[in-house]
Design a protein around this nucleic acid. Structure first.
Lengths: 192, 192, 192, 192
DNA sequence: CATGAATGAGCCTTCATTCAT
DNA sequence: AATGAATGAAGGCTCATTCAT
């Protein structure tokens, strides 16, 4: 009658694995499945059963951020101001990347291994496209900005804040502030 | 007893090594010193004598770009228009990165192994700082842009153009064009 | 309180496991207990409870063939023609091996793990010996053929038909025909 | 001027590797490249550079036997007696397999990884075919024996002598004698 | 200065078997 | 009796770097 018998251990192990992996990603360390297993206090095979590859694990880490961004995009579309809604969404976009390096990795990846990731990216892209189209139709943004530019540009800002010496020394909050500052500059330039 | 018996060969070998490495970096392939040696038709130890590590070789590849950028910065300082000279220099900056992926790597590296690289970066930074200061003093750029932001932002644009699927499909010329387009957007935002 | 609550399920599970294993052996695939469990739709532990090791499962697959061969041997001893009865039995012997690869494996194994297998092999060997002895006493076969040669020779023929490229391309029926052809050749040589 | 500078160590290492592997194959042990390296007292990578895979190493072990068999086949074709020359060659064939288990492995393999092995097998097959054809044309052997049967049959005899308990207990010389006895029986049956 | 063989740490992955529920 | 998650030993392979000639 019990739908999930032993699942308690399993769930806890999976969570531990994900937590350990997140810690490594946040520190900028390499994610090695053997090492993850060791730090999580589980056997290697347990990691492998849950995540058949490093990529799968990274995508798992990115999933909540992608889901959250989709939520933001939908809410942004409810906002009637074409410019402000786009700007807000882009703000969430870079913030998510700075807070979760796995998201940047997944964004830049040519292929994704989890169906869930593919699905989420396939959902988010068009939503971002709609936000941009609406802004462009209302002549709020420059006309030479296409929907293919949005994600790369946001990743570029995240990269500027994440990958450079000057900023790596800073704490996360300060990086988020820098990211918003950079975004503000870019947004000024993006206005029509 | 001859102090330099085959200096000519040595020079040619070094050149071959660098050329092979550049080819690999341009293709986005990993630079492995054994592989470089094989492709260059020299022994591994020859590679190691010239470049004690992969990083050293990458820095060697970046050197001409850094030198060239320093030249551009100096000439820009000769130009009396504070805004235009800055814009020109930044244009060269991203163009150099798109044309030479090794430059992006070296820019993002926390430490550099070749004294020459350290020296070049230590020269270029202040020059860029001077260009920015001059523009700021003349109120041509927004006041919240600091000299520490310039390099990261340029790297961010290069990253947007380099690391994303959409653009990876494109050829180099088209990537350079995209980079200039992105830079134009950002520059508009950077103006006071 | 019920001594055998779901004996029916247990029997069905065991059968499924054996069927799946036979399928794998027939295809020349490796028999891995985890994989067997998955394909059979049961848990690994269920497989392990029924068959403590891969070898035990393989021997289980061979059991019907061994039993059948014992039946053939006994019937052959009822046949009064010493030569024909031997020839018939050997025909069944190779046919069984070609039809059931597990039998070859068990034949070649140095040790057997199931008591049943040990018992069956201990029964079959002497029966084959009796058939040979009778033929030898009647001078139907050459005198330098001993009872220790019979099983290996049959396995050799099965191997020739089973393990070689040329024949692996063929279907099972055609392999059986080849096996009989090879046996005929050997039998001709075995005649006194 | 020196064509092979350090080659002495290299040659010795390669020989050690091959010797160790032969020992393992002769004992019926698995050939694992790590283990081979350990036993040979060399680094793993040295084994891998010489032999990219276990199969390559096994084929190397089989090479001398294949070369020797080709020599025997050619000499057999010089012998004018169609039957005796065939019988002699087949004798060498099973002797080679009993003395060198790697040969059996290579014979049974569907694909070969060393070009040399492919070449040798492609040479030996037709030579054996010629010997058989000549014997068949002179009506020395039964007409239903085709050239595709010869190699499998010899492998079958080798298998009978090699893979069975009874014979595994015996020393090599005694196994060779058994193999010749089995071959004699089969040859009697193969005569027209 | 040049060669390329040698090294071995270290990561990746599988699979037979055990164990908690 | 059944399930399937967990384990970890073990083997496969790569690659940065050193060393003998």
């Amino acid at each position: 009658m019990n739908a999930e018998p032993t699942r308690r251990d399993a769930t806890r192990n999976r969570k531990r694995i994900v937590d350990v992996a997140r810690g490594l990603v946040d520190d900028g360390s390499a994610v090695q499945l053997n090492e993850v297993a060791r730090l999580a206090g589980v056997g290697v095979a347990t990691v492998y059963r849950n995540f058949p590859s490093v990529e799968a694990l990274i995508e798992e880490l990115a999933t909540p951020s992608l889901e959250s961004l989709i939520g933001h995009a939908k809410r942004a579309l409810d906002n009637e101001d074409p410019w402000q809604s786009l700007a807000d969404f882009l703000g969430h976009t870079i913030e998510a990347q700075v807070n979760n390096p796995a998201l940047s990795t997944v964004n830049a990846a040519l292929v994704n291994v989890l169906p869930r990731t593919v699905e989420l990216k396939a959902t988010l892209g068009p939503l971002a496209g709609q936000l941009l189209d609406r802004a462009r139709r209302s002549r709020a943004v420059r006309s030479d900005l296409t929907s293919e530019d949005v994600i790369p540009l946001m990743c570029g800002i995240a990269f500027a804040v994440t990958a450079h010496d000057v900023h790596r020394r800073a704490d996360r909050d300060s990086r988020v502030r820098t990211a918003h500052r950079y975004l503000t500059m870019l947004l000024t330039g993006l206005r029509a």
